[in-house]
Amino acid sequence: VTTYKLVINGKTLKGETTTKAVDAETAEKAFKQYANDNGVDAVWTYDDATKTFTVTEMV
């Protein structure tokens, strides 16, 4: 189990959160659900070296 981080650069929601998951795909599903629940529709990137997902909402 690995800890993954999500950085949110949204128009109305900004911040960071983490989740523990067995792999990046599982973490991504959890983070996308979190973003969807909070109304963030954005572009996703992932950095495997830092285990960090970044979501940037387009203006």
Rank of each mutant, 00 (worst) to 15 (best):
A49G: 08
V59M: 10
T50Q: 04
F53S: 00
K20Y: 11
T56S: 07
F31R: 00
E25C: 08
D48I: 06
T12E: 11
T50Y: 03
M58I: 12
V43Y: 10
F53Y: 06
D48C: 04
V1N: 08
K29D: 04
V1A: 09
T18C: 13
A24W: 13
D48A: 12
K32G: 02
D48G: 06
A21I: 03
I8D: 02
T17D: 03
M58Y: 12
A30I: 15
A24Y: 14
A35G: 02
Y46C: 01
T12H: 14
K5V: 08
A24R: 14
N36C: 12
K5D: 02
K29I: 09
V43M: 09
A35E: 02
T56I: 09
A49W: 07
A27E: 00
N38E: 10
D23K: 03
K32W: 06
D47R: 00
E57Y: 09
G15N: 08
A30F: 14
E28P: 00
V40N: 05
K29P: 01
T45G: 04
L13G: 13
M58F: 12
D23C: 05
T45M: 06
A35C: 15
N38A: 14
T45R: 06
G39F: 15
V40L: 14
T50E: 06
A21E: 03
A35R: 05
D23R: 02
V7E: 03
K32H: 08
T18N: 04
K51G: 03
T19I: 14
E28H: 13
T52E: 03
V22M: 10
D37N: 10
Y4R: 00
V40H: 05
T3H: 04
T17W: 15
T2Y: 13
K11W: 11
A42C: 12
T26F: 03
V43A: 07
T52H: 01
M58T: 11
T19E: 04
Y46V: 00
T26V: 04
T54Y: 12
G10Q: 06
D37S: 10
E16P: 06
A42R: 05
T3P: 02
V43C: 11
A49Y: 08
Y4E: 01
T26N: 06
K14T: 11
T50F: 03
A35K: 04
V40G: 05
A24T: 07
N9H: 10
E16K: 05
F53R: 00
Q33S: 07
K29G: 04
N9C: 13
T17F: 15
K32D: 01
N38R: 13
A21F: 06
T52K: 02
L13H: 13
Y46L: 00
D37F: 15
K51W: 04
K32F: 05
L6N: 01
T52F: 01
V59H: 10
T17K: 13
E28V: 06
V55F: 05
I8G: 04
A27D: 01
W44L: 07
T17G: 05
M58V: 12
K14P: 08
W44E: 00
K51M: 06
D47Q: 03
E28S: 08
K51H: 11
K11P: 14
G10H: 13
V7M: 04
A24G: 02
I8F: 13
K51N: 06
W44A: 01
N38C: 15
L13D: 09
K11M: 13
T12M: 08
I8Q: 02
A30R: 11
E57F: 10
F31K: 00
N36M: 15
E57C: 11
V1L: 13
Q33D: 06
T3I: 12
V22L: 08
D47W: 01
N36A: 15
F53G: 00
T2V: 12
K11T: 14
T56Q: 08
G39T: 08
K14V: 12
V43W: 08
K20E: 11
A42E: 04
N9A: 06
K11G: 15
D47V: 03
V43D: 07
T18D: 04
T54C: 07
G15Y: 15
A42W: 15
L13S: 07
K14L: 11
V59Q: 10
D23Y: 02
Y34F: 12
L6K: 00
V1F: 12
Y4A: 01
T18E: 10
K51Q: 07
T18M: 09
N9G: 03
A35N: 04
G39I: 14
A42M: 14
E25P: 08
A27N: 00
T56D: 09
V59D: 13
A27F: 02
V55R: 03
I8Y: 13
Y46H: 00
N36F: 15
T50N: 07
K14F: 10
E28I: 08
G10W: 14
T26W: 05
A42D: 06
D41Y: 12
V22I: 12
V59R: 05
Y46E: 00
D48Q: 08
G10T: 15
Y46R: 00
D41R: 08
W44H: 00
T3F: 05
T12G: 13
W44M: 10
F53M: 01
K11V: 15
A21Y: 04
K14Q: 14
V59T: 11
T17H: 15
D41M: 10
T12Q: 09
E28W: 15
A35F: 14
E25A: 13
N38Y: 15
E25R: 08
V7T: 04
N38I: 15
N36P: 08
A30V: 15
G10P: 03
D37R: 11
D37L: 15
I8A: 03
T3V: 12
D41L: 11
I8V: 06
V7H: 04
A49H: 10
N38M: 15
Q33A: 10
N38D: 06
M58S: 10
L13N: 11
D48E: 12
V7N: 03
A27S: 01
E57T: 05
Y4N: 02
A35I: 15
Y34D: 02
K29A: 09
T45S: 12
K11Q: 14
T52C: 03
G10K: 08
W44V: 02
V22D: 05
E28Y: 15
K32P: 00
E57S: 05
V22R: 10
V1H: 11
T50I: 05
E57Q: 06
W44I: 04
K29Q: 11
K11I: 15
E57P: 05
A24N: 04
T50S: 08
V43T: 10
V1G: 09
L6W: 02
